[in-house]
Amino acid sequence: MPDPSALSPATLAGHYDGAAQAGGESLMVRLAAAFRAAGHDPEHLGLDEIAGIDQLHLGGRRASRHLAALGRLVPGERVLDVGCGTGGASRLLAQEFGCEALGVDITAAFIEVAEWLSRATGLAESSRFLCADAARTPLAEATFDAVWCQHALMNMPDVAAVLAEWRRLLKPGGRVLLHEVVSGDNPEPIALPVPWASDPAASHLCSRAAFEARLAAAGFVSESLEDVTATALAWRQKHSRREAAEELPAAPALPGPALIFGERFAAMGRNLRDNLAADKVRILAGCWRLA
């Protein structure tokens, strides 16, 4: 049986907002201070200004645009962004695709930041957020045209329960759009920490075959599925080089993921790069439709 504690708010908060858990300032306070130090008003921000903390997954906004294209999203559709983090994908779907997005995340600090960033960018009406467990939301059934999830299922120990909840929330014929990390063919343990886990108990990777089988068993029919590992690796290599350069003293810069993950972030990025290169993990992007 899955260990429920692996997805508890306290466990994930310790990983994603360790500074606050250790008695420091909240994530939102730290990020707002960093924007001020860089000469920007934290209550009036543009999407380019927040890009460094906006989408905490491989490929950033480009990967999200590609996934939206795979899912053929159209204006006016209601999208549930599961594991939304700081809300970047929800804001992108609202601004660029005309969708009404609701982001859900179990980490309260991320929801607080997501709501603030949507207010600061003028997107609070079209991108809303809820702190909840993805397997047990308080939302009404059959209310969403699509479920969107990027780099979040590997944090969820009971994927079957999550997929059952998605079936409940989707309208007939609704879609599931996934950009996900799965295990590769290399059976060696992945190097840790990585952005989604500091220890093996919090990482719930499965193979591509198991990933596809779970979706099929839950009643979702594949419409498209791509292995985007090569693109993700190139993106991670580029950012690893940039992060190494940023270790040098510099003037205050716009906040990036290191402000969220702390000193571990450089190691997380290197480990993720090396895991991808060694085929310990792969990245998939695809669209499934509710049968």
Rank of each mutant, 00 (worst) to 15 (best):
A210W: 11
R208V: 04
K238H: 10
L215R: 00
R214L: 05
G219T: 09
R289H: 07
L284N: 02
H239N: 13
A285Y: 00
S240L: 15
A258Q: 14
C287G: 02
S240Q: 14
S224W: 06
L290T: 12
L259R: 04
W288Q: 01
E243K: 15
V228S: 00
L272K: 03
R282W: 03
S224Q: 13
H239A: 07
A266T: 07
T231G: 08
D227T: 02
A210I: 10
V281S: 01
R264S: 14
A217R: 06
R242L: 15
V221Q: 14
E212H: 00
S207N: 13
A266W: 14
F211H: 10
K280L: 14
I260G: 05
A230M: 09
E263G: 09
R236H: 09
H239F: 10
D279E: 13
R270N: 09
A216Q: 11
R270D: 15
W288N: 00
K238A: 14
M268V: 10
M268L: 05
A213Y: 09
D227C: 08
T229R: 03
E243L: 14
L248N: 15
E246H: 14
A266V: 13
S224Y: 02
A277W: 10
A266K: 09
T231S: 13
D279L: 11
N275Y: 07
A267I: 11
A209F: 06
L284Y: 00
H239Q: 13
R208C: 02
L272I: 05
L254D: 06
A210C: 09
L225P: 02
G262F: 03
I283H: 09
L259K: 05
R236Q: 15
V228W: 10
R241V: 11
